[in-house]
Each structure stands twice: as C-alpha cells, then as structure tokens.
C-alpha cells in the first residue's frame, strides 16, 4: 500500500485544506475575472492549475491530477452569488 496516499483518516485535514484553498480562490476572483470569466478552473496552492469550458471537464482533470485527497478547488470564475436553498426563503420564511 502506498503510505503517501491519503485515506479516510485524512479526510478532515483534506477538507480543511479545501476550505483554505477556497478562501484563497475567492480572494483572487477580481483578478481571475480579468482572465477567466465564465470558465471553470482547477485551483490549488493559490494558483489556477488548469482552465476548462465546463464543470465536468474541470472536475475530472482535478481528480486525475491530484486524486481525491488533493485538496484542490473546482470552481467557476464569476462574482460570488448566494444560492437560495428553497423558494420559501425568498419570502423570509
């Protein structure tokens, strides 16, 4: 067994890394919009690793390059827009 390969016991640490990387990605959105607006990117170590036209391609590329424990982010480059979980929330319920 490859001892360097992350396992389920590393999940919390990987999730923490994704959270950190996600914060870095969000901080860089103003700069990224100038270059990659509307594109899907794989983002890791505070940098864009690859650029794709759709989410599926970006997701597969990230998984192939870094594996499930890579701690990378797959995201579309756009202004952050809060999601309504349910229509009821639009009525303040």
């Amino acid at each position: 067994m490859d001892m360097d390969r992350p396992t389920i016991s590393d999940r919390d640490a990987i999730l923490a890394r994704v959270k950190t990387e996600s914060a870095r990605f969000r901080a860089k959105i103003p700069q990224l919009l100038l270059l990659y607006k509307g594109k899907w990117v794989v983002f890791r170590d505070d940098a864009v690793v690859s650029v794709h036209s759709d989410e599926e391609s970006a997701y597969v590329a990230g998984l192939k390059q870094f594996g499930p424990g890579g701690g990378h982010v797959v995201a579309v480059v756009r202004e952050p827009e809060p999601v309504l979980l349910s229509a009821a929330i639009a009525f303040g319920l």
């Binding site: 994704v18 959270k19 701690g71 982010v73 309504l84």
Partner: peptide, 11 residues
C-alpha cells in the same frame, strides 16, 4: 469518503 471541491454562499 468523498471530499469537497469548494464552497458556495448559501442564503
């Protein structure tokens, strides 16, 4: 055993 691929803002 899956890992997140990022975060999103949710109301």
């Amino acid at each position: 055993g899956v890992v997140s691929i990022g975060e999103t803002d949710v109301h």
